[in-house]
Design a protein around this nucleic acid. Structure first.
Length: 882
RNA sequence: GGGCGAUUAGCUCAAUUGGAUAGAGCGUCCGGUUUACACCCGGAAGGUUAUAAGUUCGAGUCUUAUAUCGCCCACCA
């Protein structure tokens, strides 16, 4: 078919104008929707990791946006029903904190405004702020199906959450009970193990005397003296000769005077501290286990805000740290203290807010996770789900093999209320529990106030967003999804839980591949932080340079699973690459007139440069395809860039000017068709990386189809791979390189058109004769004259030797015989070294027998070339010295 | 204490069935208003691929050890 291109192409790509225009155009035409591919198309579905609904776009979002949009656009071009399903997360703690901060600025607390009002304010905040993150994703070019956008607290997802909870409850996999939990005193909620981060910190280790009832004492060390008030035993190792005799005796809790037993337990490390351990089961996980073994009492001495409670005696009401100081002073006064030493240990802090978390007894809801974990382990072990990069599978296995029951209740207001009701029985207000999708009809039932961990709803995301538990059309067509692309930091939080819940509720792996990306850091590998002042706002980059440069840079700056260090000079460089692609398009555009037949001329109508560039193009397509298949998008992008910037633009474009300006009509058209084909292919390959510029540029070359976004992904055409043309052309390009080099070395005025004389064997001579214009275009050689082998060597010339070709550049007046001899000698030495090396290799029987034939042949060819070149250099040297 | 990853040019990074002279960008130096592009073009310098041993015809790539850095997991008070 024939097609024409739009004319009047602007000199530069105006991203600011084009980005909005194109995005609207794409969306208006329904091209983000999977339906564009037709009902029989194979689906390709990615569930977007839902960002915090009130969040703002940061580079982490930009990275996942760039990667997922790349995958989606690629599969869309391959004809799949590509669905990128977007959405946002209510993000329980994070959002609640934001609203609480807002209230604090108004001078009120959450408790003061009350539950109903607080929820209303939070919804209002969500409505006001909730659009920001999705608007920002649009600016990146994210081709999501916005009609299918979901929110973890919307009605459908709330139904899914209740259904999941009820099912697990009915299966006996949810239980409620008092346990020691990680308690966040500031947030006043339980948090899961995963939400606690421990970091080494400098603290004090307090040594003191634990008085014994019968007199004397046992020395003990602790980092948290206030927990002494909750001690219910003193433990020593039965094998410890110092203390074994005291087992069975009683000790007296300092200040409080409570009597507690001295017990023996292997868990006590004789080497550490004093070798004796105070046991506080209500405030220490380790002690809790000891208490279970010895049936010790639990005494909780902390309130929910981490102040001391009535059990702490005279310290009741004091903050935990005040109590620590006061108690220590009092103990010192009583002669019970020994010493304090500085000590480095890991302190547990809340991931949100960073306050020190306290182990505290409280009643919480748990998921008995073992059965779910086993399915999730099996799915990855059997290869039904693959993790990229693969080494994360080990991490995944280790976590799931050692998984603890999941505390799913949170004492927050913003979230999914746990569908449970309590009724008073025998004086216990929670004596009866009812779990169901709605309140029981009778009077007297009070709904559970706790909400579910945000990750409970996120865990259902791949199928809840498609309509589950209803057997909706979308669920049938688009579930299971294909790739889960997300950060490795939420492998446990989210990915593992999606796998567990997906397998449990739908009996299918929710996706077949997990692609993990790393953290985006600054150019020196430092985490972005406000205090360091190194934060880079992706939208500032988008405003300044456009979305395409940011996307391409993020994708090509790292490899899967590894952190991405973002160097802003690379964004600038990509910006220039985008301009380069635009300029190539512009060149082609201005060298077309009217219609052009699309596709390539017959191979026998193609000249050497055309065969060469098309062969290179096919190799590029094949490489990119392979790299996409193994998720190496960064390398794929770099290869496209290298092809366009280092081969197509500087060489083929320049060479094509010959046919374009000096060729006959058929040469001209053939060349135009090659140019258009190569550029069309490159734009298609680049589209998933930089959708805006490529879409806009595509309009300016003749093309078939309405839009690049829905154009077909190019297949590699093996028939066009032409190794012979590549090596013939490489010879010419190598000569060009050498020529430029010599010109530069001899400081020949770049504007000066020089003459070159050549001696070559017949085959190469033919190419030199026919394609002499290559030298004219690429290194300003006005004329290339072929000499016969009988011709004398031109006097006063510099010579260039490549393979079996010698070029002579008569540089009258510039030639320094001494320097030229030196140059040739160096060249000869270099060749000699390589010849020796290659000969050694080729005389090694092991190499000849074991290396693949193609490799051996390559070395033989290389040796022939090197020897031929060496002979010419040697001859040239001897004639210079005559 | 266990596990994982990284270590390549001054800086930031590539190099995926092991195969030619280890590539880019930024920075540095030299030279250019060549009608697609100064958001450009040409040239140059810069590397014992952390160290040591091993496997192999051949190692940046595979194995082992060491060093340094980073991350994850774990109940030494």
């Amino acid at each position: 078919m024939r097609a024409s291109a739009e004319s009047n192409m602007p000199r530069n790509f105006n991203y600011a104008d084009a980005e909005h225009r194109l995005y609207d155009w794409w969306e208006r035409n329904g091209w983000f929707k999977p339906e564009v591919a037709g009902p029989d198309a194979e689906p390709f579905v990615v569930s977007m990791p839902p960002p915090n609904v009130t969040g703002n776009l940061h580079l982490g979002h930009a990275l996942f946006g760039a990667l997922e949009d790349l995958m989606i656009r690629y599969e869309r071009m391959r004809g799949k029903a590509a669905l990128w399903l977007p959405g946002t997360d209510h993000a329980g703690i994070a959002t609640q904190l934001q609203v609480e901060n807002m209230l604090r600025e108004e001078g009120v607390s959450r408790e003061q405004v009350g539950y109903e009002e607080f929820l209303q304010r939070t919804w209002q905040w969500k409505e006001e702020q909730g659009g920001a993150i999705t608007r920002q994703l649009r600016r990146l070019g994210a081709s999501c199906d916005w009609d299918r956008e979901r929110f973890t607290l919307d009605d459908g997802l709330s139904t899914a959450v209740r259904q999941a909870f009820l099912t697990l409850w009915e299966q006996g996999l949810i239980y409620r009970g008092p346990r020691l939990v990680n308690w966040s005193p500031g947030l006043q909620t339980a948090v899961s193990d995963l939400e606690v981060e421990t970091r080494e910190e400098q603290v004090t280790l307090y040594y003191f005397k634990y008085p014994l009832k019968d007199g004397g004492h046992i020395p003990v060390a602790t980092t948290r003296p206030e927990t002494i008030l909750g001690d219910t035993a003193l433990a020593v190792n039965p094998a410890d000769a110092r203390y074994a005799a005291y087992i069975g005796k009683s000790a007296i809790v300092p200040i409080l005077g409570r009597e507690i037993p001295v017990i023996g337990d292997d868990a006590v490390d004789m080497e550490f501290g004093t070798g004796a351990l105070k046991v506080t089961p209500a405030h220490d996980f380790n002690d809790y286990e000891i208490a279970q073994r010895h049936q010790l009492a639990l005494i909780n001495v902390l309130n929910k805000d981490a102040s001391m409670n009535a059990k702490a005696g005279k310290y009741a009401g004091a903050d935990r740290y005040d109590c620590r100081e006061r108690l220590w002073r009092d103990m010192a006064a009583a002669g019970l203290t020994i010493k304090t030493t500085p000590y480095t240990t890991r302190i547990p802090r809340s991931q949100r807010g960073g306050e020190v978390v306290e182990p505290l007894m409280s009643t919480q809801w748990y998921v008995r996770i073992q059965p779910l974990a086993e399915k999730a382990l099996a799915a990855v072990r059997r290869g039904e789900i693959k993790i990229v990069p693969e080494h994360y599978e080990k991490v995944y296995f280790h976590w799931l093999e050692n998984i603890q029951d999941w505390c799913i209740s949170r004492q927050l207001w913003w979230g999914h209320r746990i569908p449970a009701w309590y009724r008073e029985k025998d004086g216990d207000p929670e004596g009866e529990i009812y779990v169901g999708s709605a309140a029981p009809p009778e009077d007297g039932w009070v709904m559970e106030e706790d909400v579910l961990d945000t990750w409970f709803s996120s865990g259902l995301w791949p199928f809840s967003t498609l309509g589950w538990p209803a057997e909706s059309d979308d669920l049938q067509r688009y579930y299971p999804t294909q790739v889960m692309e997300t950060g490795h930091d939420i492998l446990f939080f989210w990915v593992a839980r999606m796998i567990m819940m997906g397998l449990w509720f739908t009996d299918k792996p929710p996706f077949h591949t997990v692609y993990l990306h790393g953290l985006v850091r600054d150019k020196h590998g430092k985490k972005f932080s406000k205090s360091l002042g190194n934060v880079i706002d992706p939208l500032t980059i988008v405003d300044k340079l456009g979305a395409d440069p940011l996307r391409f840079t993020l994708i090509t700056s790292g490899s899967p699973g590894n952190d991405v260090n973002l160097d802003e000079t690379r964004v600038d460089h990509t910006f220039r690459f985008i301009n380069k692609v635009w300029q190539i398009t512009s060149f082609i555009n201005m060298n077309l007139e009217g219609d052009l037949e699309l596709g390539l001329p017959a191979v026998n109508e193609l000249d050497l440069p055309a065969r060469w560039i098309l062969s290179r193009l096919q190799r590029l397509i094949a490489n990119v395809q392979h790299l996409f298949d193994i998720y190496q998008y960064g390398e794929a992008g770099s290869q496209i860039l290298a092809f366009m910037w280092d081969e197509f633009a500087p060489n083929y474009l320049e060479i094509s000017k010959h046919a374009m300006y000096a060729g006959d009509e058929s040469e001209k058209i053939a060349t135009q068709r090659v140019l258009v084909t190569v550029q069309d292919t490159c734009l298609r390959l680049l589209h998933p990386f930089m959708p805006f510029m490529t879409e806009e540029a595509w309009r300016y070359i003749p093309h078939d189809g309405e839009a690049l976004i829905i154009a077909a992904w190019p297949p590699a055409d093996e028939a066009l791979i032409d190794a012979a043309s590549e090596s013939r052309m490489n010879l010419l390009l190598e000569l060009v390189r050498e020529l430029r080099n010599v010109r530069s070395e001899y400081k020949v005025d770049p504007g000066q058109r020089i003459t070159a004389l050549a001696k070559a064997r017949p085959a190469a001579a033919k190419d030199l004769e026919k394609y002499g214009f290559v030298f004219s275009r690429l290194c300003n050689v006005a004329e290339l004259q072929l000499l016969s082998s009988e011709d004398p060597e031109p006097a006063n010339s510099v010579s260039i030797v490549v393979s079996d070709i010698t070029l002579y550049l008569p540089l009258e007046g510039m030639l320094d015989l001494e320097a030229e001899s030196q140059r040739l000698e160096n060249e000869g030495k270099r060749l000699r070294q390589q010849i020796d090396k290659t000969r050694v290799m080729l005389s090694n029987d092991n190499f000849l027998n074991k290396a693949p034939a193609a490799i051996v042949q390559r070395e033989r060819d290389r040796l022939a070339d090197l020897e031929s070149a060496y002979a010419q250099v040697a001859e040239r040297l001897s004639s210079l010295s005559r």
